[in-house]
């Protein structure tokens, strides 16, 4: 007890100051959120109307027009990416937390950590080389591959951390009942951790959902309707990017509206995930 020499009053004061500091930290984060979203809201709300969700993009100066194809396209491209990254990521995390000892597991962990630092644009380059140059054209699918590359390490690392938080006593109890390990993992570990898992997946979706750089050279974009995964597809971030860098107010407004919709979609997804997590027993 090296702190024993200090007076209790002083220790108490330090304690209060530090705990107050934690309150301040939380306030700062929340204030920043409101500040940034408020900024986007003020700039983007004028651009939001029914047309925005139902119409195709129009050029500068043409009234109306929306980003219906980009909204649907984003859902499809991110959805396909999640379909690829989530099962692989969660399974890999199961391996790491339940079986993973030794060199193989630590190298997987290590590579996942390193992959988390791959800039989005590099994921785009890789997906281009793997898919686009082989298929000979841009496609929604190649965009999903790029996003899946970005999602995978996030899902693995966050899932593993969550699995580690499942108390060992639960596993032991299940095993003691004669339930095999694989069923224990599925019925006990995965279920107990489901809330945290969903949070991790959400974070991953939120993280890649707004990326434009990896999609430019993969999903490309489309001024028209297309739902085919083997054809170029419009996405919100790419449209946002195109509009934001243009010189025209008309399009700037649409860019901010797109940002607002993007944030709103992730918000909805978050809420859905929270409701899911609450419905489940577990922590």
């Amino acid at each position: 007890m090296n702190g024993g020499g200090l007076g209790y009053g002083r220790r108490k004061l330090t304690g209060h100051v530090m705990m107050a500091g934690s309150l301040v930290a939380a306030c700062i984060a929340v204030a920043l959120l409101f500040w940034i979203i408020g900024y986007v809201f003020i700039k983007g709300i004028h651009g939001i109307n029914l047309d925005f969700f139902t119409e195709l993009p129009t050029p500068v100066g043409v009234e109306g027009g929306g980003l219906a194809n980009a909204i649907v396209g984003s859902i499809i491209v991110v959805g396909m990416a999640a379909l690829m990254a989530v099962p692989v990521g969660v399974a890999a995390a199961v391996y790491l937390s339940e079986y993973g000892r030794g060199l193989f597991a630590s190298s997987v962990r290590f590579v996942a950590d390193v992959l988390a630092g791959v800039p989005a644009i590099v994921a785009g380059i890789v997906a281009y080389a793997l898919v686009v140059s082989r298929m000979g054209r841009f496609s929604a699918f190649s965009g999903s591959v790029a996003l899946a590359i970005l999602m995978l390490p996030i899902i693995i690392r966050s899932s593993e951390e969550i699995f580690k938080t499942v108390p060992n006593t639960l596993r032991e109890a299940s095993l003691a009942l004669g339930i095999p390990r694989w069923r224990t993992v599925i019925k006990v570990v995965l279920r107990t951790a489901s809330g945290g898992l969903v949070t991790g997946i959400m974070l991953a979706v939120a993280r890649v959902g707004g990326e434009a750089a990896p999609l430019l050279f993969t999903a490309f974009s489309n001024s028209f309707w297309s739902l085919r995964p083997d054809q170029p597809m419009a996405t919100l971030p790419v449209q946002l990017f195109n509009y934001a860098i243009s010189p025209y107010d008309d399009w700037h407004e649409k860019a901010w509206a797109a940002a607002l919709v993007l944030i709103f979609m992730v918000l909805m997804l978050n809420i859905a995930a929270k409701m899911y997590a609450h419905r489940r027993p577990g922590r």
């Binding site: 984060a29 940034i36 986007v40 434009a212 993007l262 978050n270």
Partner: peptide
């Protein structure tokens, strides 16, 4: 620390949620 040690339980969810939303804002924004 605030969320696990200090905040009343009813506040933990909403604050944690809001902090996570910071990840939802696109990089360009």
């Amino acid at each position: 620390v605030f969320l696990t040690e200090l905040a009343p339980v009813w506040l933990r969810g909403p604050i944690g949620f809001m902090v996570e939303l910071l990840a939802a804002i696109p990089s360009l924004v």
